[in-house]
Nucleic acid binder design. Structure first.
Length: 871
RNA sequence: GCGGGUGUGGCGGAACCGGUAGACGCGCCAGACUCAAAAUCUGGUUCUGGCAACAGAGUGUCGGUUCGACUCCGACCACCCGCACCA
C-alpha cells in the first residue's frame, strides 16, 4: 500500500509557512477585476504574550480570509498593534524600562507567536500606533478636526487623583479611590480637549439601521448609549425673596428639560445640580448648599457609590412660578442626584409619576398630586402610595390638559409652551462629547501650542510631527511630559514669543479609530490614501470581543463621519460586517487558603476532588472563568502547538462551540481535535493507489457506491460553504467529520466501478474544504496528492446541483402527530403517490388499528400526517 | 429599576420558514488488534419498561394556538450581559 506517512505537524507546518512567505501569497493587491474583501480582527494591545483567547479571534478571521480568497476575492487581512497606553508607563515606573522598549520588545515576542499560527496576514502592512510614522499622521488628522471645529477645548468634569496628579478613567476609580495611589478621588473641572461626537448623535443613531451585518445586540447597546429622548425645554420665572441672587441671574429664570411635559400640573418642586451656576452663587451664602456641593464632588462615580448615596436636597429659598398657573409657586432645591451635564442641569419634579421624585417628595414633605390617571380609574379615588405611577392614561387636575390621553397631553403642553414663547420642543441625547485629553506620556502628542498672547495655536503642518521626547523620567507622580525640563518650551509659531507646548496626549481610543483606514495604505505620505481607502473600505468583516461594542466601535463610526466632513474619506460606515466572538474560558483552581493555582499545579485526587500535585494538599475547583492572569487560568499557545501542532489548535477553537459563545478550553477537547487531524490525514492519503491519478477524466460508468460518494462530497461542499459564510464554523467542522467518515468507509469498496475517480475527487475536496481551518495539513496533503500548485491558490469548490439532489425521499408518517413509520418514494412523487405509499405501509396499517382517517396532510418532501378517529 | 439574551442527553452542541428532537464531537460502555499497554478500528449510548419488535415520556415551569410546537402566543422561574440618579 502506497500511503502517505504519518502526519507530523511539527515538521510540516513551518515548511508551508516558509513557502507562503517566499511566494508572498498573502500580499494584498488592489485588483479592479476582482471583488474585494477586507477582513480585520481587532488589533491587539502588546501586553507581553498572546494567549488562546487572542488565537481564537485571529483564527476566526483567518478562516474567513482564506475562504474568501479561495472564492476569488482580493483579500486584505492586515495586522498591527494598539501600542500606546498606560501599561507601558506602569512598566516604566515599576521596572525602570522605557515604555518604547517595553512595547517594542513585547511586539517582537507577540509577532513571533502570531507567525507560528500560520495566519494569512499581509505582514508588509504592519504598524504600531506608537510608531512616529503613525502618530505623525494622526496629528495631521487632529489638525483637520480642529480646523473643522470638531476638536475643541472645554471645561470637563474629571476624576482627579490628587496624589498621582492625573486624571483617571471611571474604571480606574475603585470605591472612590485611585486604583494606584489609593487617594480619595475628586471631581475637578479641567480644561480638556474634546471631540464633538454629539454633532453626529442623530447620524450615529440613524446609521445603525444600515448596519445589517452587525449583531442586533451591539446596535441596541449603541442606540441606548446615544440615548435619544424627545421632550420640552422651558424656562420658569424665578423669585428670590431673600435677595441672594444678582438681579440679572434671577431675571434669567430657571431652564429645565423634561420628557414628561404632560405631568406639569403635578409638579411639586424644582431641583438643580450641585454644580449648576445658580447653586454656585448660592454656595457662597448658604453653607448647606456649599456642604452638599462638597460632598457631591467627593462622591465616587461608580454605579454602586451612586446607588448607596442617600438622595438629598437643600432648599435654596428660591422659588419658581408655575408656567401655566401664575398663582402656584414651587420651591427650588439643590439635589445631589441632578446631573449638570445632562439636559440643562435642572429639573422639575412630579412625585406622582416618577419614583425618584416621589422618594424625594416623601423625604421633604412635598405634595403628591396624581395627574395621569390609568384608564377606567376614578381620578378622585386615585391615590399614590409608595410607588409612582409611570404608565399611561388620561389627564386630570390639569386645567387645559384635562381628559387628554398622556401622549396627546405632551404635545398639547409643548404647543402651549411654544405659543407662550416660554419653551420649545427639544431632542436630547445622553451621549456626551468625547474627552480625549490624557495627562500621560505614552500617547500621541496633541499638536498645539499655548501662547500667552495668541492663545491656542496649532502646530504648523510643516513642523509636524511633534515627537515624544525620549529622555523622560517616571519617578515623580503626574505627567512626565509636563515635568520635562525643555520639551514644552517653544516659540509661538504665530508671534514668536515664548510659549508652551500642549503636554496632554490623545486617548488611545483615537489611535484605534482610524487604523483600519491606514492599513489600506500604511506607507502613504498622507494619513489616508483616497484611492486605497475607496477600494478597500469599508471593512467587510470585522471580528472582535463584545467588550468593544460601544466605545471603540462608536468612536470609529464618529471618526469616519468627522473625516468625511473634512473631505478626507468617502465612506458612510467603517465596518459593514461585525462579528463579536465569545471568550475562551478555563477551569480555575484555588488551594485551601484561597490562593489561585495554575491548572498544571493540580491533579485529580481519585475521589472526585483535586489536590496540589507537588504537596498533595487539597485544592478546590472553582468556576469556569474568562482567562486572566490574576486567576492563573491562562493557557499559552506554545505548549499546545508543540504538542499538537497549530492546525489541531485552530481546529479545536472553531469546533463544537458556536463562535459567538464562550468556549471552554479543555485537554480532552484539544486531544479530540488532534485525533481528527490524523483521521482526516488518513482519509485523504492512507492508500494513494486507491485513487485515480490527478486530473484523470471521469469514467463513463459509475457504480452506485461511487455515485453515492460523489453525492456525499457535493453535499458536503454545499453545506460547508454555507456554514462558513454564516459564521457557523462548528457546523462546518461537523460536516468535515461526516465526509471524512464517509470517505474512510468508501475506501473499503474501492474496486467498485469508478470508485478510484470518486475517491480522488473526495480526497481533493477534503483538502480544499479543510484548508481554511487546517491550512498546513491541507497544503501537505494537496502536495502528496500529486499537485505542484498550492491549495491556497486553488479556487473554492462549487457543488454540482445535480449531485446534491436526492432521487428518493424519506417521508416520515405521523398518525395524530406521532411518528409511526416512514416511507421511501421517488423524489418527485405527488401527493396521491405518497398517500398510496402511506396507505400501503404495514406499520401504518398496524398503528391505525381500525380507526378511520378523517384527514390526510402532506407537506411536500417533508412529512405526512394522518388524522385518525379511533374506530 | 430599564433594555437585551440564554435555558435541549453525563458534557459542548445540532434541528433551515411550525414538519422524524438529539446531527457532529467529547465522555462512557462493549468488542477487535496486542504478551500487555498506548494508538487505532468496529458497535452501542435521551430516559423508563421490554430479550426483542415495540410502547410510553421527553427541549427550564405552567397554560394556549395547531393535524403537528425546541420553534408561535400568554404567564412564570433561573442564569448571563449591557445601561443605570438621563429628568
Amino acid at each position: 500500500m502506497i500511503g502517505m506517512s504519518r502526519y507530523n505537524p511539527l515538521a510540516v507546518e513551518p515548511k508551508w509557512q516558509q513557502v507562503w512567505e517566499a511566494r508572498e501569497v498573502f500580499r494584498a493587491r488592489t485588483d479592479a477585476g476582482r471583488p474585494k474583501c477586507y477582513v480585520l480582527e481587532m488589533f491587539p494591545y502588546p501586553s507581553g504574550r498572546i494567549h488562546i483567547g487572542h488565537v481564537r479571534n485571529y483564527v476566526m478571521g483567518d478562516v474567513v480570509a482564506r475562504f474568501k480568497r479561495a472564492q476569488g476575492y482580493s483579500v486584505l487581512h492586515p495586522m498591527g498593534w494598539d501600542a500606546f497606553g498606560m501599561p507601558a508607563e506602569n512598566a516604566a515606573m515599576e521596572r525602570k524600562v522605557h515604555p518604547a522598549k517595553w512595547t517594542y520588545d513585547n511586539i517582537a515576542v507577540m509577532k513571533a507567536q502570531l507567525k507560528r499560527l500560520g495566519l494569512s496576514i499581509d505582514w508588509s502592512r504592519e504598524f504600531a500606533t506608537c510608531d512616529p510614522a503613525y502618530y505623525a499622521q494622526q496629528q495631521q488628522l487632529f489638525l483637520d478636526l480642529l480646523e473643522a471645529g470638531l476638536a475643541y477645548r472645554r471645561q470637563m468634569s474629571v476624576n482627579w487623583d490628587p496624589v498621582d496628579h492625573t486624571v483617571l478613567a471611571n474604571e480606574q476609580v475603585i470605591d472612590g479611590r485611585g486604583w494606584r495611589s489609593g487617594a480619595l478621588v475628586e471631581k475637578r473641572q479641567l480644561e480638556q480637549w474634546a471631540f464633538r461626537i454629539t454633532a453626529f448623535a442623530e447620524e450615529l443613531l440613524e446609521g445603525l439601521k444600515s448596519l445589517e451585518r452587525w449583531p442586533e445586540k451591539v446596535r441596541l447597546m449603541q442606540a441606548n448609549w446615544i440615548g435619544r429622548s424627545e421632550g420640552l425645554t422651558f424656562t420658569f420665572a424665578l423669585e428670590d425673596p431673600a435677595g441672594r441672587l444678582p438681579e440679572a441671574e434671577r431675571a434669567e429664570g430657571l431652564t429645565v428639560y423634561t420628557t414628561r411635559p404632560d405631568t406639569l400640573f403635578g409638579a411639586a418642586f424644582c431641583a438643580i445640580a450641585p454644580d449648576h451656576p445658580l447653586a454656585r452663587h448660592l454656595a457662597a451664602q448658604v453653607p448647606a448648599v456649599a456642604a452638599l456641593a462638597e460632598r457631591a464632588a467627593h462622591l465616587g462615580t461608580s454605579a454602586e457609590a451612586l446607588e448607596r448615596a442617600e438622595k438629598e436636597g437643600v432648599d435654596t429659598g428660591l422659588c419658581v412660578v408655575h408656567p401655566f398657573d401664575p398663582d402656584r409657586r414651587l420651591p427650588v432645591y439643590v439635589a445631589n442626584f441632578v446631573l449638570m451635564d445632562y439636559g440643562t442641569g435642572a429639573i422639575f419634579g412630579c412625585p406622582a409619576h416618577d419614583q425618584r421624585d416621589l422618594d424625594f417628595a416623601r423625604k421633604y414633605g412635598l405634595p403628591v398630586r396624581p395627574v395621569v390617571i390609568p384608564e377606567g380609574v376614578d381620578p378622585a379615588g386615585f391615590v399614590i402610595g409608595e410607588e409612582a405611577y409611570t404608565g399611561g392614561g388620561r389627564l386630570a387636575h390639569s386645567d387645559f390638559l384635562d381628559g387628554l390621553e398622556a401622549e396627546a397631553a405632551k404635545a398639547a403642553a409643548i404647543d402651549r409652551m411654544e405659543a407662550l414663547g416660554r419653551g420649545r420642543r427639544t431632542v436630547n441625547y445622553r451621549l456626551r462629547d468625547w474627552g480625549v485629553s490624557r495627562q500621560r506620556y505614552w500617547g500621541c502628542p496633541i499638536p498645539v501650542i499655548h501662547c500667552p498672547a495668541c492663545g491656542v495655536v496649532p502646530v504648523p503642518r510643516a513642523d509636524l510631527p511633534v515627537l515624544l521626547p525620549e529622555d523622560v523620567s517616571f519617578d515623580r507622580p503626574g505627567n512626565p511630559l509636563a515635568h520635562h525640563p525643555s520639551w514644552s518650551h517653544v516659540a509661538c509659531p504665530s508671534c514668536g514669543c515664548l510659549a508652551r507646548r500642549e503636554t496632554d496626549t490623545l486617548d488611545t481610543f483615537v489611535d484605534s479609530s482610524w487604523y483600519f483606514a491606514r492599513f489600506c495604505a500604511p506607507h502613504a505620505a498622507e494619513p489616508i490614501d483616497r484611492a486605497a481607502t475607496d477600494y478597500w473600505l469599508p471593512v467587510d468583516q470585522y471580528i472582535g470581543g463584545v467588550e468593544h461594542a460601544i466605545l471603540h466601535l462608536l468612536y470609529s463610526r464618529f471618526f469616519v463621519r468627522a473625516l468625511k466632513a473634512c473631505g478626507k474619506i468617502g465612506l458612510a460606515e467603517p465596518f459593514a460586517g461585525l462579528f463579536t466572538q465569545g471568550m475562551v474560558c478555563h477551569a480555575t483552581y484555588k488551594d485551601d487558603r484561597g490562593a489561585w493555582l495554575f491548572p498544571e499545579e493540580v491533579e485529580e485526587d481519585g475521589a472526585g476532588g483535586w489536590r496540589v500535585a507537588s504537596t498533595g494538599a487539597p485544592a478546590i475547583a472553582g468556576p469556569l472563568e474568562k482567562m486572566s492572569k490574576s486567576k492563573r487560568n491562562v493557557v499559552a499557545p506554545e505548549p499546545i502547538i508543540e504538542a499538537y501542532g497549530v492546525d489541531s489548535a485552530r481546529l479545536f477553537l472553531v469546533s463544537d462551540t458556536p463562535p459567538e459563545r464562550d468556549i471552554e478550553w479543555t485537554q480532552a477537547g484539544i486531544e479530540g481535535a488532534w485525533r481528527f487531524t490524523h483521521r482526516l490525514w488518513r482519509a485523504i492519503g492512507e492508500d494513494l493507489s486507491a485513487l485515480a491519478p490527478a486530473g484523470a477524466p471521469m469514467p463513463a460508468e459509475l457504480a452506485p457506491e461511487a455515485m453515492a460518494l460523489r453525492k456525499a462530497v457535493h453535499k458536503a461542499v454545499a453545506a460547508v460553504t454555507e456554514d462558513i459564510e454564516r459564521f457557523r464554523f462548528n457546523r462546518a467542522v461537523a460536516r468535515l467529520h461526516e465526509l471524512t467518515t464517509t470517505v474512510i468507509e468508501a475506501r473499503g469498496r474501492s474496486e467498485a466501478g469508478g470508485m478510484t475517480y470518486a475517491l480522488r475527487e473526495a480526497a481533493e475536496a477534503l483538502c480544499r474544504l479543510a484548508a481554511p481551518v487546517l491550512p498546513h495539513l491541507a497544503e501537505e496533503a494537496w502536495s502528496a496528492l500529486g499537485h505542484d500548485t498550492l491549495v491556497i491558490d486553488s479556487p473554492w469548490l462549487v457543488a454540482d446541483p445535480a449531485l446534491t439532489r436526492e432521487d428518493e425521499m424519506v417521508i416520515p408518517v405521523q398518525i395524530n402527530g406521532k411518528r409511526r413509520s416512514e416511507i421511501v418514494v421517488p423524489a418527485g412523487a405527488d401527493e396521491a403517490a405518497v398517500r398510496a405509499a402511506v396507505m400501503a405501509d404495514e406499520a401504518v396499517a398496524r398503528a391505525l388499528g381500525g380507526g378511520s382517517v378523517t384527514k390526510f396532510i402532506y407537506v411536500p418532501g417533508r412529512i405526512a400526517n394522518l388524522v385518525v378517529r379511533p374506530g
